[in-house]
Each structure stands twice: as C-alpha cells, then as structure tokens.
Design a protein around this nucleic acid. Sequence first.
DNA 1: ATGACCTGTCCTACAGGA
Length: 256
Amino acid sequence: MKIATYNVNGINGRLAVLLRWLKEAKPDVVCLQELKCPDQLFPEAALLKAGYHSIWHGQKSWNGVAVLSKEEIKETRRNLDGDPDDLHSRYIEGFVYGMVIGCLYLPNGNPAPGPKFDYKLSWFKRLHKHAKKLLSFDLPVLLIGDYNVIPTELDTYKSEKYITNALFFPESRLAYTKLLKLGWTDAIRYLHPNERIYTFYDYLRNAYGRDAGLRLDHFLLNDIVLPRLISAQVDKEVRGWEKSSDHCPVWIELKQ
DNA sequence: ATGACCTGTCCTACAGGA
C-alpha cells in the first residue's frame, strides 16, 4: 500500500505532470494540495480515466485539497471546526482501505509576525484539536500534507536563512512538535532520523540544481498505522520535469 | 539588501507563494 502527498501548485496547469507521475509511481492513495481551482473545474474525469477516484475541496485561485484513491473513497469531513469565517479550502478527510486519511494544506504564515502568521497559528490550534479527536479513533489514521513547517535545522539546506521565516519560526516548530507529542509520528523522520531529506525546492536561484531544499510535506501516523510502516521516499526527479510544481511527490509504503 | 520564478486572474500587473 503506497500513500503519497503532492502539493501540485495548480492542478489544471500541471495535470500532465500529475498524470505522468501517477502512471509511473502507481500510488494507491494520494493527498493533493494547492489545487488552485474551483470545484467545478477539478479534473475528475481525467483522473478517473487514469484509474483514480477523488474527493476534493477546491477554491478559486488559491488553496484547495483533494484525496485520490484507486478504491472509491468516502468523504468524512471538510474544513476544521473553530472558525466559521475561515473560507480557505485547506482540509479534507476521507475513509478508504480501512483508514482515515486527513489531507491538509497549512497556511504559509509569511510575513511573520503579522496577521498571516496569526492565522497560521490559529489554524494550527484548530488542527491540534481535531488531531486529538482523531487519536481517540480505534482505526489507522494518517494526517498528511503540506504543513508549511521546517521542523528542525536538518530539514533545511541553510537554517540561518530561515530565522525570520514563518516556516521556521519557533512558534511554528513548537506547534508542530506539540502535535507530535499528542501521539503522532513523523514517518519520514522515524525511518530516517539523521538524513537530510527535502520535499520542496524554490523556483528561484536554481534551488533544485543546488539541492537547496526544505522538508515541508509530512506524514503523521497514529500508533495503529506505525507498525505497518515499511519505507518512505521523495520522488525528487519529478521536480526536474518540465512544468513541475515546486514541491516533489512524497510517499510512504505500508504493509498490506 | 535585492531579486531571481511560478501560478491564476475579467485591467500584460497584481497577489500569494515559501
């Protein structure tokens, strides 16, 4: 069972890249972020043709999340509780293959400090609350997506460049650590505790060519899934494809 | 310190991204 996450940075503008990667990587489940399309423009038919059912929560121009699956998936939730004024499409959750899959796109938060950073932290708090609730389920649960958090120095090519950045601010990293302490495991770090692993490369300054990346896309697993974890990998070469997203597809493999 | 680059959008210039 291969479960992936991919911040596509515009699903229609990059549909060819997504379809090519799906064909080559053959994941069973995929969490997508930054669809940047309204619900009615989600490419459901093209994905079905490629062998994937979808649930999606789009938005015009910005944000947007979806879960693709080879088996039909049942949507269990969209959005987090706690702020009825928040209109960003950043969370969708589904049930498939006996697992609960939460797909999220956490706010970037720059410039920090400021209102955007406040929004990031308040969104984090709402996620924290929901993550706690998910841990009460007697089911395999995964919280997957673009967390927009560089958890430690090891997750950036040059941490001093990110001191004033919302992705690396102490509050952001602390919120992430607090989430883990609830009872979640960062799957990539669990399997590769000391390795530099990046999932994002800026379009600027030839970041990909210089291997100047960040690890922003994370898989959080509850204790019921964790014993099934076999491997984790970044499909780094996809970042080098024509018209690629600035994020790489990332995946984990589970037993069964 | 700045800008280099991408997306989508009813003002080919902007906002937002990380």
